[in-house]
Each structure stands twice: as C-alpha cells, then as structure tokens.
Design a protein around this nucleic acid. Structure first.
Length: 425
RNA sequence: GUGAGCGUAGCUCAAUUGGUCAGAGCACUGGACUGUGGCUCCAGUGGUUGGGGGUUCAAGUCCCCUCGCUCACCCCA
C-alpha cells in the first residue's frame, strides 16, 4: 500500500460489486435485443481529431478534459471521452449507410475524462451507449428516449426526472442565440462572473446556471421553442407527441442545453434524485451535424449515453435488487488425507456437470472446511472420508437445514446437478 | 483549475490540556468440539498512526510541505 495505488479518479470494481454490474449488462443486452440494437465493440482510443472536430474545439471536454498522447510513431491519440463520435466514425468507415437505415447500434465500456473526481464522477467511468444513425425521423428520437427509460424501468429505478428540449439547428440556433443575448445584455451587470464570461462564448449555458440571481434573470428569457425554424418545431412536436403516445413521463425544460457542439434538435436528460451534484444518469439527443464535422457525408443520428457508475449508485441508494449473486453450490470436504484423490475426482465431475463446486486445497481440518463452506454460502457439502469410500457413498449435507444423508457415489453428481438446476430457476 | 473537510490494523472507529496511546469491534487463522458450518468462549496473525520536515525533554495529537480521499464549484454520464 506504500507505493503504487490506482491513479486518481479511477477505481477497481471488486467481486462484491462486479456481479451487480454484470446483472445490469444482462438486462441491457436483453433490452437491446428487444429494440433491435446490435452490439459493437469500439476502440478505447482514437485519432485526436475525431474528438476535437466531432465534439467541438471550444467545448470543455476537448479543451481541458482529454487524455491525449502521442504514440511511438508520433501520431496524436486520445482516450475516448465518450462513444458517440467513435460510433459515427465506425458507421462511416464501414459503409453502414448502404445497409438498412437507421443503423441501430450499442456498446458499453469505459470513457476517460480528466476531471476533478467527486461523487458520481470519475476519470474513468462506464457508459451504456445507444445510437441510431441514418434517420432523421422524430420517431427514432422517441425510440431512443423510450429505450433508455425502459432500461431504468426494468432495473427498478425510481425518483427519476426526464427533461426534454430542442436546441434547434444551424438554421435557427444562431437567431435564438442573438435573441437571447439581446435579452441578457439588459441584465448583464447582474449576472454572475462566470455567466458574464459565457455571454459571448456560449450564452446558452447561462440558461442552466445554478446561481439564483442568474436563474431569476433567465426566468424571463426568450424561450427556444419560440425561435425554432419550422422544421425543428415540427420535429419537436412529433417527438413530444410520440412520447405522450407511449405514456412517457417527462418535462419540457427550456433551460436544458448541451455541452457538446454536435447536438441538434432534440436534447434530453434523465436525472436521478438520489445522487449528489452529479445527478445526470443519462443524457442524449440528436446530432445531425456530427458526421459532417468529422469529414463524412451529412448523416442524421440520435442516441444517448447512460452512466453505469451512477446507475449503480442510484440503485444502491434505493436499495434495489441486482438479481442473484453467484455462489458455490457444493463444497467438497475431505475428511482424511486418504480421501483426497476421490474428493478431487468428485469435485471435477461436479464442475463438468455444470455445478458450481469448490474444495479446500490447503489441507485444513474438517471443521475449518465446513466453516469455509458456510462463508462461501454453499448450498450443499459433500463429505468424503475412508468410511464413505468403503461404502461407496458420499455424505451430502444440506447447509440450510443441517440435514445429512448418504447418497450412492454413482448417483450423487446427477442428483446435485438436478438440485442446482432447479435452484437456479 | 478553485474551495472546504478529512487521512490511526483488510474494514468501522477509540486514544482526556502534546506525557505507557498504539487500542477495540468486525474479518482472518487456530483451539475448546482429535470427521461437520452458522451461537458462545479463548488465543493468535496484523499498524514505521499516508509520506517528509519542523517545534518540544516528549507528537497520532501542534506548525509547514507533499501525496491521497471526500464533498462542492466548474462540467457532465
């Protein structure tokens, strides 16, 4: 412990927690199938330009949060800070536009951002990422949002808030931007210093400032929806209509803006009421300009990223179940040294039969082996000693009841396999 | 990058105004019960008190530096 520790902001997911993650992946994988999304595995690092051009040169992510390095040939590479840009790159690189549209893809894995760690924020964090690329239909926006809500529904998450908004497109956003600036200019002196700094660079961000005085000012600010072009307005209406149709509970939040440049039209976010300041458990929206930004043909797309670390935090906070923690079903206990070979044989027969089984290898006494079986929460113990071997039986003890019975050696594996099978259902 | 709080055994925490203060519980290992767990009792393993420097007769306890953790700002998943 003296010297080498995990770097700041990263952590180990140990066995007591990893099985919970596995159960979330299982649920997610099933939902992906149910919605027709196929899994892809993407590289964990990319050419730096993919992100600097895709996400936007002036965004916080690109300006100060990327892990960028040169490899041995001098190429500039970056550990991915998010998955969407990679997904679109893969879509373009493999000509997926020639397949059925939209291409519905998903992936999971770690993302890396150099940020100050705090509750729910790590330098390496896991996301579930779903993207539908190649369609501009608002029904796809609806599907993506519905899919994310279905994940949370099946996991049992409560106390969530769904915020939806439209951030317009290159045609109408600039007009709104100036309208907003015109309004804010009248109150410029009352804005907090941070917002005064944002005024020119990114006035939309002022809308979600947490300072009370800024909030009061932006309460009266012009609404994006009144400034959307006809196309964006129709699109937004269709999305809202679709969500209503599915009975989705959401709130239109005119303050919802996005930190990444590539977003157009639909923007949405799912907030957890059981996290700290970092309360977004999922964020997404439409990004019709991303493909062009990274050098491809105009290709519309929608998607979302959900934060696994935050989902787990919320689930633990809400004391939700994670399915079943895997455990050893049978412990083989060897009563005497002379029974060790037979014990080993039995152990591997059980394992081959698909019964989770284990055995002590350190030569401990029977009592200690029993205790280990208890700690491992094993359902059964098979005791083997010279007397059992002579009689051709195995003493099978059911740990929960404490009852023990002799079972013929020839039948014991099939018998336990049957019990393990029914126990798992 | 900024601010605040905190760093004592694997875990959770004790240690009066600096003076046997390096401890307890849990966990782990062994024993009481020489072939049987979960209860009880006993014993044992385990810490250069995050690291470095300073003040002092004496520092876990005070001061400085450093590293780390936590929460918040910022930003987002």
């Amino acid at each position: 412990m003296e010297n080498i520790k995990a770097p700041r902001g990263v952590r180990d997911i140990l066995p007591d927690e990893s099985w919970k993650w596995a159960s979330i992946f299982e649920v997610t994988r099933k939902i992906a199938e149910d919605f027709g999304y196929r899994e892809v595995h993407l590289p964990i690092f990319e050419q730096t330009e993919l992100f600097s051009r895709g996400i936007g040169e002036t965004t916080d992510v690109v300006e100060k949060e990327m892990y960028t390095f040169s490899d041995r040939s001098g190429r500039s590479l970056t550990l991915r800070p998010e998955a969407t840009a990679s997904m679109v790159r893969a879509y373009l690189e493999h000509g997926m536009a020639s397949g059925p549209q939209p291409s519905k893809l998903w992936c999971t894995g770690p993302m890396m951002r150099y940020e100050r760690p705090q509750k729910g924020r790590y330098r390496q964090f896991w996301q579930l990422d779903f993207e539908a690329i190649g369609s501009s239909s608002p029904l796809v926006d609806v599907e993506v949002i519905a899919l994310s809500l279905e994940i949370f529904r099946r996991l049992g998450l409560a106390n969530l808030e769904v915020l939806v908004n439209s951030v317009g497109c290159p045609a109408c956003r600039p007009l709104y931007r100036t309208a907003l600036q015109d309004y804010l200019r009248m109150h410029f002196d009352s804005l907090c210093p941070t917002c005064q700094g944002r005024f020119d660079r990114n006035p939309l961000r002022i809308l979600d400032c947490k300072v009370e005085t800024c909030k009061a000012i932006t309460d009266g600010a012009p609404d994006v929806r009144d400034h959307l072009c006809e196309e964006c307005r129709d699109h937004f209406d269709e999305v809202l209509k679709g969500l209503d149709l599915l009975g989705a509970k959401f709130r239109i939040d005119k303050r919802l803006v996005r930190g990444l440049d590539y977003y157009t039209k639909t923007a949405y976010e799912v907030l957890s009421g059981d996290l700290g300041a970092q309360n977004a458990v999922c964020g997404g929206g439409r990004y019709d300009n991303l493909a062009e930004a990274i050098g491809g043909p105009h290709t519309p797309g929608v998607g979302f990223a959900a934060g696994l670390d935050r989902i787990v935090l919320t689930m633990e906070q809400q004391r939700l179940g994670f399915g079943t923690e895997p455990s050893i079903f049978v412990m083989v206990v060897v009563a005497e040294e002379s029974a060790r070979d037979e014990g080993l044989r039995l152990l591997y027969e059980l394992r081959k039969a698909g019964v989770p089984a284990d055995m002590d290898t350190s030569g401990k006494g029977v009592k200690a082996q029993m205790k280990a079986a208890g700690t491992a929460k094993s359902n059964f113990v098979c005791v083997l000693g010279s007397s059992e071997i002579e009689k051709g039986v195995v003493a099978v003890k059911e740990m929960a009841t404490g009852t023990q019975a002799e079972v013929a050696r020839g039948r014991v594996v099939a018998d336990l396999a049957a019990r393990a099978g029914s126990a798992r259902r």
